[in-house]
Amino acid sequence: MTVIVRDLRPDVRSDAEGFSRVRQLALPFMLFTPESLVHDLTHTHPDARFRQLIAEEDGEVVGTAQVGLAHESTEPGQGFANVYVHPERTGRGAGTLLVRTAEAHLSAVGASISYAWVLDAPSNRAFAERRGYTASRSAHFLRLDLAHGALPPLRTPPPGVELRTAADFAGDPRPLFVLDAETTLDEPSDIDTEFADYEAWLAGTWRHPLFSRELTSVVLVDGRPAAFSAARTDGGNRYGTVMTGTARAFRGRGLAKLAKNASLHRARAAGCTEAFTGNDSGNGPMLAINKWFGYDICATEVRYVRELG
């Protein structure tokens, strides 16, 4: 049996379906669709030098990799290579070939460091460490049973505070870009990220096929966007929050809880039965908020790093 690695072809439906299937099996707590994968490939900023790689064994997609440069980082040369293999096809060379191909691409485009998320299991961690990667920070995936869990009751916003949705900003989403950019600066990460390109944000966030403007909540204070909870759905019954944050001037007032609670209630009313999110293991405030909502940790990933020679 021969394993080959090649690029995902965005115009071939079976490529995106195979990639999506492997990712859903390896990471059932994240949202992927064939359409979202093609969008990521065709709309990521050119400076990211982004590639999606497929490992095939006898014509079957058995492994995937997303690889590129963190072009929004304040420090140049930061690369990433996230590799996931079909859980029933491990140990047959697909992961090794994907890592080798990904690192060759990163070196060719000027990366000096490769970061990789690795599921926190002994076999996965050993795979990374054998290839010279060193463990860094960790992050948790969390799940909430929307169908049977009890959400906190909705509360009336205090005076001067208003709840809206992202759909209300369809005519001019720039205020949401500004809010997203500010809160992202304070996200715990190995790679500092600075949103400075509004058009890139529109393509990668606002127009993303998984992004739900109707389920994304925005809290206004005296008419100014102060907090938000950004939501995605897979078109079925799965919902995820990919960012919840509050502008620095408005923190400590419970606005993030207000935004997220409104989004969760709307998601359940829309028929979503599972809610997913993720938090850096050092992000105590957000982990506490999600515990308050009833989320449970369902998996952990470890960020590994390797200097590229």
Rank of each mutant, 00 (worst) to 15 (best):
W206Y: 13
A203V: 07
R137N: 02
T233G: 13
L142P: 01
H140K: 00
S136F: 00
G235E: 08
V67H: 03
S73W: 05
R251E: 04
R21T: 15
N124T: 02
E57K: 15
R238D: 09
H86F: 04
N290I: 07
F19A: 15
F195W: 15
E199F: 07
G254H: 10
A147Q: 13
V118A: 06
T134I: 10
T33P: 12
G204P: 01
T183N: 02
S73C: 12
A269P: 00
A167M: 05
V118G: 00
S123R: 15
H43V: 06
Q52S: 14
E35K: 11
H105V: 09
A128L: 09
C298F: 02
A166W: 10
R251T: 09
E274L: 12
L27E: 14
W292S: 14
A104S: 13
E72C: 08
A230R: 10
T2A: 14
R9C: 08
Q66M: 13
D192A: 15
D58F: 04
A94F: 06
A231Q: 13
G278Q: 06
E72S: 11
G79H: 11
A166V: 04
T183G: 01
A259P: 00
R49M: 07
S281G: 02
G77S: 09
E307F: 06
A299W: 02
T184Q: 05
A288N: 04
T216P: 08
R232S: 10
G204L: 05
N290K: 00
R303M: 13
R51T: 03
V161I: 14
S212D: 10
F32R: 11
H208Q: 07
T244Q: 02
A48W: 08
V67C: 13
S212Q: 06
A48N: 11
L144K: 06
T216C: 07
Y295L: 01
I297L: 00
G91N: 04
P153N: 04
T165I: 03
H105W: 15
N124L: 06
A196Q: 11
V67N: 06
V118Q: 04
L151G: 11
A139W: 11
A247M: 02
E187V: 15
N261D: 09
A94R: 09
G235N: 12
V178K: 07
A270C: 05
G91R: 03
S14Q: 14
N237R: 15
I191Q: 06
A259F: 01
G132W: 06
S123E: 14
N261H: 03
R266P: 03
G171M: 08
E56H: 08
A200I: 05
R268D: 01
E194D: 13
E162W: 04
P158F: 02
A81Q: 05
E35T: 11
